[in-house]
């Protein structure tokens, strides 16, 4: 036992082992983010993650680092977003009321949502596309989106 009755397995072996495993994973895999090679691949990923969302238009972010989709055949206007999380993607389907604010920051569209785990969704779409999608978000959110938006 360590001073204070602490268990050496729990307080020395386990933390060192954890560091070793993380180090080995980093050595072999690095820190690469997932990317989308084409709009078709983006549609496929979204269909896997949100099979109920029928995508119409899609815009790919620069370097394939995410995508944004408009919904089709739906009674409620919705927009879906794919963003990388490590070597995987996370999808969010945004409907009226889900967006807290949206802004164009440089080349990026930055959307703030009520999601606790990832409230900030950023997509490098280019200034023109970013503005177009921001207007769409404004539209279906009934003008509730703050045009001042986040500061990036």
């Amino acid at each position: 036992m360590l001073p204070g009755g602490l268990d050496p397995v729990l307080f020395i072996v386990a933390p060192l082992g954890v560091l070793g495993v993380i180090g080995l994973t980093w050595l072999f895999g690095g820190l690469r983010d997932a990317s989308l090679a084409s709009p078709e691949i983006a549609r496929q990923r979204l269909a896997e993650l949100d099979p109920g969302f029928v995508a119409a238009g899609v815009t790919l972010a620069r370097s394939g680092a995410g995508a944004i989709f408009s919904g089709a055949g739906d009674h409620k206007p919705r927009i879906a977003v794919l963003v990388p999380l490590g070597d995987r993607f996370v999808s969010r389907v945004l409907g009226p009321g889900d967006v807290v604010d949206a802004a164009v920051v440089g080349e990026r569209l930055v959307i703030r949502t009520r999601d606790f785990t990832g409230p900030r969704l950023a997509l490098a779409l280019g200034a023109g596309e970013a503005e177009r999608w921001r207007e769409r978000l404004l539209e279906f959110n009934g003008g509730a989106v703050d045009p001042g938006g986040p500061d990036g």
């Binding site: 729990l10 954890v18 993380i22 994973t25 690095g30 070597d87």
Partner: peptide, 20 residues
């Protein structure tokens, strides 16, 4: 199989946290 550094770090942090 497949590992991702940040995912692995999160999993192991959860494991350590669970024990503590």
């Amino acid at each position: 199989g497949r590992y991702e550094t940040r995912d692995t770090a999160a999993s192991l942090a959860m494991g350590l946290g669970n024990q503590i």
